[in-house]
Design a protein around this nucleic acid. Structure first.
Length: 570
RNA sequence: GGGCCUGUAGCUCAACGGUUAGAGCAGGGCGCUCAUAACGCCUUGGUUGGGGGUUCGAAUCCCUCCGGGCCUACCA
């Protein structure tokens, strides 16, 4: 039995995520976790909310809440929605947890001991009205290059020139609009990633099976310009993990916190501690410390492409730099973006479908199936309502749902709701089993390789094989002359339903549960030998005809949703 | 500006440098009647964005042009 540690990039706390966020990390991670569990392997699947940073503070202020309360509330909201989508996290933690505070400070202490942290004195824009330092993007002013009046402190959106906030003419705070700004001296800690460049590059180079998207982004950062740059890992904020060296105070760093991108990945480890604290597990070191049992763990991370630099470079620099035997990631699966109907999803403009809204209008499995079967693996993908309606109706309602319907209803009308006795399987059934066996191996291969779209295609082909079989076996005809033979064919059909439930569960877990319930079967064992797998429901086994598994999306619904989600979220 | 990804049938996507570029959907025809007007079989459809080159052989490798996207280190 293999052991799989699986993490999804942790979603930011400041609101409900859209479908693009979902398909970029949490959903494919869940697919992989469910598959590996289905195969009987030991899985620890972790995710959390990423709670620190300026946007969280601002969102809390806007909501009129203390930031800690705001985060606690939003964590609960996100956890609830995740559950609604069937995301099977073993634990959904929080980057603000005490465990992460302690562990982040621990790593900083180790890195400092090993001379991998340096202090840098710099000046940054301070806003008196806001009472805080402002990140470059939170300062706007007139572009010195083109005269655009809403240029941001890091870059002008109009002429794309890279800027320094001090270059802006008439700079103002994006938060308050105040122009009462000054450059103020401050001091920050930098992680000396540059000294680890060769080590990191050798490690990346050894990962020849990673997606191109992952390695090309990593190499770009390693070799662009002057090579890998040191990175500031502290910020002048109130909300965050106080800067300490282990448990010691850090002279000169009073009142400062670690940068979110330093503490967020560490939460992957802290989350396992939270998992134990929550009473869900026994021994987190067994998953994370190669000196304490994690040497046989395979660790896979899932994320959108914007997260790749931090997972390929910064976090590994933290792990390797500590000099301690932490488990390094084995495989990084990254995704492109999902666009919405000709443009981008936009949180601010309410454009596109957000996770809570998606669950309001349709069951999770509809979304899971479409998103996974169209996952943006090789390039950006696009959600359109036409495509969504067509795919879901065809694949789920017609191919799978109707298959279940026709075989169970036929059996009920001719033999009752019991697996019928009599007859035997012949050449036709042997051919079907041979095809299923072959397709199953292809499906497994794609799932192991995390080829999400190809897995979905193969699964669909497995469903289709059932319809082909019924069509050619035609038990409704056989029944007229040879009811025993028809019984054998129906037995095959009913057993296919159970098989499909098991194989489909990683993609559509809720429907899979309903199928197993209808078949009154709790045998979820992954098929080995087809003959055995298709005999799980024995003669005389009772079942119930399930309610319509997937209702079709109507044209009226599609049009209504298209209009509703075009922009301006209510 | 630089880097990376991408462009294949009406649509969404496949195709280790190697037969005649394949699937699903949509379109057309036929069949079936168990089923959610569902299913099955057959079928139309491509100068692989344009041009040039390497090669016995190019969707695939190289150059160039055109289109789309992403990243570019203080949003996370």
């Amino acid at each position: 039995m293999a052991r799989h540690l699986i993490t999804s990039a942790i979603p930011y706390i400041n609101g409900i995520k859209h479908l693009g966020n979902l398909v970029g990390s949490q959903l494919p991670a869940d697919l992989f976790a469910r598959y590996q569990r289905g195969r009987g392997h030991e899985v620890l699947f972790l995710c959390a909310t990423d709670e620190h940073g300026t946007p969280a503070e601002l969102a809390a202020a806007k909501a009129g809440q203390p930031v800690a309360d705001y985060c606690a509330e939003m964590h609960a909201v996100q956890a609830d929605i995740a559950q609604g989508f069937g995301l099977s996290f073993d634990h959904f933690g929080r980057s603000s947890s005490p465990a992460n505070h302690a562990l982040t400070q621990h790593f900083a202490g180790k890195l400092a001991e090993r001379d991998l942290i340096r202090e840098v004195s710099e000046t940054q824009m301070y806003s008196h009205a806001d009472g805080r330092f402002l990140p470059d993007r939170y300062i706007e002013g007139t572009c010195p290059n083109c005269g655009f009046d809403s240029a941001r402190g890091d870059q002008c959106d109009n002429c794309t020139k890279q800027l320094d906030p001090v270059e802006l003419i008439n700079p103002r705070s994006v938060i308050s609009g105040s122009t009462d700004l000054e450059m103020r001296a401050t001091k920050h800690l930098y992680l000396r990633q540059s000294t680890m460049k060769d080590q990191l590059e050798a490690w990346i180079d050894s990962k020849t099976d990673w997606p191109v998207l992952t390695t090309s982004i990593a190499k770009k950062w390693l070799n662009d310009g002057d090579g890998l740059q040191d990175r500031g890992i502290t910020r002048d904020l109130d909300w965050g993990i106080p800067v300490k060296r282990g448990q010691e105070d850090w002279p000169g760093m009073e009142g400062k916190v670690f940068y979110v991108w330093f503490d967020a990945p560490i939460e992957y480890i802290a989350c396992a501690q939270e998992w134990v604290e929550a009473g869900k597990g026994q021994d987190w070191q067994r998953w994370w410390r190669t000196d304490m049992g994690a040497q046989d763990v395979t660790y896979t991370q899932f994320m959108g492409k914007d997260n790749v630099p931090f997972h390929t470079l910064s976090f590994p620099a933290t792990i390797l730099g500590s000099g301690e035997p932490w488990k390094l990631v084995d495989y990084i699966k990254s995704f492109n973006y999902l666009n919405y109907d000709g443009g981008q999803f936009s949180t601010s403009r309410g454009r596109g479908v957000f996770m809570d809204q998606a669950l309001e209008i349709l069951p999770a499995d509809y979304w899971r199936w479409w998103l996974l079967s169209h996952a943006p693996e090789s390039s950006d993908a696009e959600f359109t309502w036409d495509n969504f309606q067509a795919s879901v109706n065809k694949d789920l309602a017609d191919v799978l749902g109707n298959f279940v319907s026709r075989i169970t209803k036929f059996c009920r009308s001719k033999f009752g709701e019991t697996v019928p006795e009599g007859g035997s399987w012949g050449a036709q059934e042997a051919a079907l089993m041979a095809e299923l066996g072959q397709r199953l191996r292809a499906y497994e291969g794609h799932m192991e390789a995390m080829e999400v779209r190809k897995s979905a295609q193969e699964l669909r082909a497995i469903w289709v094989a059932g319809n082909e079989y019924l069509q050619s076996a035609a038990p409704w005809s056989t029944f007229k002359e040879n009811p025993e033979q028809a019984a054998a064919q129906v037995r095959m059909g009913l057993n296919l339903v159970r098989l499909y439930a098991v194989l489909s569960a990683p993609f559509i877990p809720f429907a899979a549960d309903r199928l197993l319930e209808a078949m009154k079967c709790d045998d979820r064992s992954w098929p080995g030998d087809m003959q055995t797998a298709l005999s799980a429901l024995p003669v005389g086994h009772g079942f119930e005809v399930p309610e319509v598994l997937f209702a079709k999306i109507t044209d009226e619904q599609r049009e209504e949703w298209q209009a509703r989600f075009a922009g301006q979220r209510s």
